[in-house]
Write a protein that binds this DNA or RNA. Structure first.
Lengths: 199, 199
DNA sequence: GTCGTTATTCCTCATGTGGAGAATTCTGCT
DNA sequence: AGCAGAATTCTCCACATGAGGAATAACGAC
């Protein structure tokens, strides 16, 4: 921060981008807990209040620093859903596991606690999982009980991701994606297209 | 805290119990995030350092205040596992959902973020889920791949509990326990005793 | 020019954590 | 019994943090 100099900076000096870069470094180096907003601000040569002004609280700074908006998980899931209905469950599991292995493996351990700790973010999750990610897929299948099936698939998916990335439970968590797809795929398939007990 | 009065208190004055009671009140009234260690100490008429001395950090104070040691989920799961193998999956799901509905429904939303935020607690979870809770059950079934089956069951269970209590996904989250058992039971049954694809 | 808006800093407050030290109780020894 | 010293229990102080509000300076529309 420019010492003793209050008020707006002269034009042409973007502060958002430096803050974002500093946040990426900080979170990568020290993890979510140990990272501090103040240190991010110091790195960016900016006052902590500025960080707050642009990104709100720490969890929002964190998710912003991950640039999660760049990747669209829903698109990947939709791509996996193209093709025959047989084996759809396995393809779906495979796609999601691959996605997370490639892009989110390192960061999900950080994202989840942040999301869980923030009521606002948590409230968005069901909407995302149900409507955004799995909803279109299940509707395409033209089955009844689509919402129920969606939530069942979401529950199994959430469980797999949780035991793979968040609370590692052996030996499932260290199986290769193909094996996980083979093991869990039939379950998802049943939730998608199989017989469900009547209410 | 007794002002200006340093050092050990006269005998017979238990401080642990008042702190625990205060913590229960505080967490119940304000939730985990908003609750403060200092406020608990104030309520108990004790210095914050005393709280720290007895219970360590905030997450440990929290779990201590829940008295989670009193209930033994493993025993309930074992009880549900007594009986014929047919329908075991459904009975198991039912038992776990009932347990959480009755005893943990209100608090799990608070427990999970606290656990996730604490690396120590998180490290204990797999051990608990795998070995303590489900391990004996799967061993009793005398199947091969017992550890793998255990982790598969854990993944589906974790998913159900997550979508029911933590990130409510409709309509699954508001189904009665019997329906959830009917829906998810076959999956657990397959993970327990069904055919699994070879490695 | 003036005037509201926006971007930025500074200050304040309550918090979680850690350490130093004081008052009490306990232990071993004579 | 009596007493020195160790262990336990507890308070105070210090520190860095996350959050919010007030003050201030540059900008843009008119």
């Amino acid at each position: 921060m420019v010492e003793g100099r209050r008020g707006r900076r002269p034009a042409g000096q973007d502060t958002r981008e430096p803050v974002l870069a500093a946040a990426r470094e900080e979170f990568r180096e020290r993890g979510y807990e140990a990272a501090s907003v103040r240190s991010v601000a110091r790195r960016a040569g900016v006052d902590p209040g500025t960080v707050r002004h642009w990104f709100g609280d720490k969890t929002h700074l964190f998710t912003a620093s991950l640039g999660l908006a760049d990747v669209d998980p829903a698109a990947i899931v939709r791509a996996a859903a193209d093709g025959p209905v047989e084996g759809l469950g396995a393809r779906l599991v495979r796609a999601v596991v691959d996605l997370w292995d490639a892009d989110y493996g390192d960061t999900v351990r950080l994202v989840i606690p942040a999301v869980m700790a923030d009521p606002g973010l948590r409230a968005l999750l069901p909407q995302f999982l149900g409507a955004e990610l799995l909803g279109p897929l299940v509707r395409r299948l033209d089955v009844d009980d689509a919402p129920l099936r969606t939530s069942l698939v979401a529950s199994q998916m959430a469980g797999v991701l949780m035991t793979r990335y968040l609370v590692p439970i052996e030996p499932l968590c260290s199986q290769p994606p193909a094996r996980i797809a083979a093991l869990v795929g039939p379950t998802v398939q049943r939730y998608l297209t199989g017989d469900l007990p009547p209410a």
